[in-house]
């Protein structure tokens, strides 16, 4: 074969501490430490035990950060997930109230989520010319509409057999809440799949250049469908655990969750244009926002103000890479001159 020049191309990549620190994930870890110090300074009660106790009510959303990262990496977006949470939460209550045993309740909830995801996946992949923002806007309205049909005039439903769903909100060994363990397990699985498997690589390929990925034999349709199904399933998971902590559902359940989840991902460096970022970043970003909320809550900052602070933080986070890029450019120009 060719190769006449005998030129050698390096295939080793050296990972130095400095390089790692200059990734977005590295910066997030620093920010994570900084936020914790800040939290401790504003709140006396910001202790490990307290955080562990308060965390569960925020954690349900973390379930959705994981598959949302997949969707964003694909270059898609799913804004129907808040409605799926509402629908699955509502169904969970109705199934249980109808006297079904607990395993059936769980299966019903997760199954409903999965079906919602499959619906999104089917519609989105069948009409590739439609942006997913539009298709999921449609299903957002449909899913919440179905939930509201069930909820009826009262607009809410309670989980009457509270004892039945209690196991999901208990603490193992009286310290570690079950939900934390489930979130960690899910986070590990989702991260490994995205960063280490051929499926994960295919998602990045599609998000970076859909046409090239298709020409290279990536089954674009199937990958996108699976991502939406996973999204629906995990939204069902979120609905299940949310019900376990609130013992009911109403018409506002899960409202705005989609934007919070997307915000966590974007904050974590997963660009909504696709092909960029890692789930590690998304998870750290999710934790940072969660911890900040807990501390601000402890310090009696009112909840509207917390939203303002979190929103401002997000905008700053999204701006930083652009500013960093400009500084790098200026440095290079100086070096060349």
């Amino acid at each position: 074969m060719a190769g006449k020049s005998g030129r050698s191309i390096k295939a080793e990549e050296k990972l130095t501490a400095k390089k790692l620190l200059f990734t977005w994930e590295g910066a997030l870890i620093l920010l994570f430490i900084a936020v914790n110090i800040f939290n401790m300074s504003i709140s006396q009660s910001y202790t490990f035990a307290n955080v562990l106790r308060e965390m569960p009510k925020f954690l349900a959303e973390m379930f959705m950060v994981l598959p949302m990262a997949y969707i964003l990496v694909l270059g898609d977006i799913d804004i129907s997930v808040g409605s799926i949470v509402c629908l699955t939460g509502t169904l969970t209550c109705y199934i249980s109230n109808a006297g079904a045993p607990f395993p059936v309740v769980i299966l019903g909830c997760l199954g409903a989520g999965l079906l919602c995801g499959a619906f999104n996946g089917f519609v989105t992949t069948s009409f590739p010319e439609l942006p997913s923002m539009i298709t999921t806007l449609g299903s957002q309205i449909i899913f919440r509409g179905i939930a509201e049909i069930y909820l009826g005039g009262g607009g809410s439903v309670s989980y009457t057999n509270t004892k039945q769903i209690m196991p999901l909100s208990t603490k193992l060994g009286k310290t570690v809440p079950v939900i934390i363990l489930v979130v960690i397990l899910a986070a590990v699985i989702f991260t490994v799949i995205l960063q280490r498997t051929t499926f994960g690589r295919s998602l990045y390929a599609i998000g970076s250049n859909k046409v090239s990925a298709f020409y290279a034999g990536v089954d674009v349709k199937r990958c996108r469908f699976i991502a939406y199904v996973l999204m629906g399933f995990m939204a069902g998971m979120c609905g299940l655990f949310l019900t376990a902590y609130t013992y009911g559902a109403n018409t506002t359940t899960g409202q705005g969750f989609e934007m919070e989840v997307i915000a966590m991902c974007v904050f974590g460096g997963i660009a909504s244009t696709g092909g960029k970022g890692t789930l590690v970043g998304g998870i750290i970003a999710g934790l940072i926002i969660t911890l900040l909320r807990i501390a601000l809550g402890q310090a009696n900052v009112n909840s509207q103000m917390i939203l303002v602070i979190v929103g401002a933080l997000l905008i700053i986070a999204v701006l930083i890479p652009g500013i960093k890029g400009r500084i790098d450019e200026m440095r290079k120009l100086k070096a060349a001159a």
């Binding site: 690589r201 295919s202 390929a205 970076s208 090239s212």
Partner: peptide, 21 residues
């Protein structure tokens, strides 16, 4: 640039994409 390669990817990843499985 639009069909043959993923321009933002490294060369190696591009070469092995069709055979990654």
């Amino acid at each position: 640039s639009t069909e043959g390669l993923i321009l933002s990817w490294g060369l190696g990843r591009n070469v092995t994409l069709p055979i990654q499985k």
